[in-house]
Design a binder for these strands. Structure first.
Lengths: 240, 240
DNA sequence: AAGTGGTCTAGACCACTGG
DNA sequence: CAGTGGTCTAGACCACTTT
């Protein structure tokens, strides 16, 4: 869409009203009929907005009852206080630092090279160490296809690759596949993370694709195990 | 729904046709107009079916082009929905064994007891060791609220809790929040998993809810780190 | 009985893609 | 240009929950 779709702006409006307490957790949203009147739109549009909220874990629709606001504090999952880079980084008062270790041209690694044709395997390799309060948390290794992103300025690697891809280059990032495993780190990684040699590290590998299904980026994130936390909201979906 | 909705059976039909190669990876599905004729239904119904396939990572819709079949072979371990040990086990055709270690009444642990009212904290505690090919893989510890499931037969704990909940008790399991961390295991857990004392284990904690938003089950899964793999298909969603 | 969400239909206009 | 998916509308009937 060029301008934001109506159902999306309604979803965003409802979302912020939930966030700011206008619809408290446990309460119900207005009925679909009431929302039709409120936003002056058709039922289908309201239902698409509510579907967005449902997919994001903000509400649960109950037949015959209504749309119930859920407790969306996924980051206060009731376990003791492990804090990750991305969590800490959201709170801006923390001293997060990104150190660029490599920024160079490299071919895609063998194990994922079958994602693309041979002539497109040229990539930019970026290795970055993320620290918080002088403590190393995670090493990110990115391969970004040069056929899609010809050049990555050093200043971009120091801040946010995604912001550059989406806002500057207008790339439409659509989906990714991820895997999480726990493996012994190589010596260099352990050294960077300030861990004893051969220590276990958490490895998150992702393959990222654009909206036209073209493969675009391969990322390996190597986490200190004591600073790793992954949280997820999952709906039980139809078995296909 | 009592009988399966039309859009869901279309989604399942398309899914199996993709699975069995009638629509190969990289090819396009028939257009929405063609599918309307094929299934003799309205466009909205076709679109809801395609949306199911999209959410499950089977296709990617491209404006002006069509619906492209994605490669899903990479995901032999789909935990991105809510999937259990025995569900996995069916798909992978392995020799799995479940040993019941505890099956008794216990109150919910303190740290998650605030999920429910005090008078409802009575739960059934089930601890099970899951083995594949004689090798211990994971210890599952479940707390199931007695207010919702009064009794769990031993035979059920040996096979599948979910099948019992959904097929026997007709519970409508709707969503869950999960976290994944890596922590030193306690001595008993390490012993069960055949690991040295104090070894790191992967801990997956989930809170599961029914369609009426009532909290229902708390699960802790303790995995051998060398046998743990979590894979996920994630779409970039609208920021709400 | 009244209100709620779930499904399905039929039609319309738009933006994007391709030949 | 014709074909594609994206959005929006207006109406209908159903199953479920509450009063």
């Amino acid at each position: 869409m060029d301008t934001t779709a109506k159902y999306l702006s309604i979803a965003q409006d409802l979302s912020s009203k939930i966030k700011y307490g206008q619809y408290p957790v446990g309460d119900k949203l207005p009925s679909e009929a009431a929302l039709m009147r409120l936003y002056g739109t058709s039922r289908d549009t309201i239902r698409k907005a509510l579907e967005e909220l449902t997919n994001n874990g903000l509400i649960q629709k109950v037949k015959g009852k209504g749309s119930i606001v859920l407790n969306t504090s996924r980051f206060t999952f009731p376990i003791s206080g492990i804090t990750t880079f991305s969590e800490l980084n959201q709170r801006q008062q923390m001293h997060a630092l990104t150190k660029i270790i490599n920024l160079e041209e490299r071919a895609l690694p063998e194990n994922i090279a079958d994602q693309v044709a041979v002539e497109q395997r040229a990539a930019t390799f970026v290795r970055r160490l993320r620290q918080i309060e002088q403590e190393p948390i995670v090493v990110d290794e990115d391969y970004i296809l040069k056929s899609i992103v010809p050049h990555i300025p050093r200043s971009v690697a120091e801040s946010s690759l995604y912001k550059y891809f989406e806002q500057e280059l207008n790339l439409d990032i659509a989906y990714a596949t991820k895997s999480i495993t726990v493996e012994p780190g190589d010596d260099y990684t352990c050294q960077l993370l300030n861990l004893p040699a051969k220590s276990l590290v958490v490895i998150v590998r992702s393959l990222t694709y654009l909206a036209d299904t073209s493969f675009f980026q391969y990322t390996t994130s190597l986490h200190r195990p004591d600073r790793f936390k992954f949280t997820d909201f999952a709906r039980r979906s139809a078995k296909l």
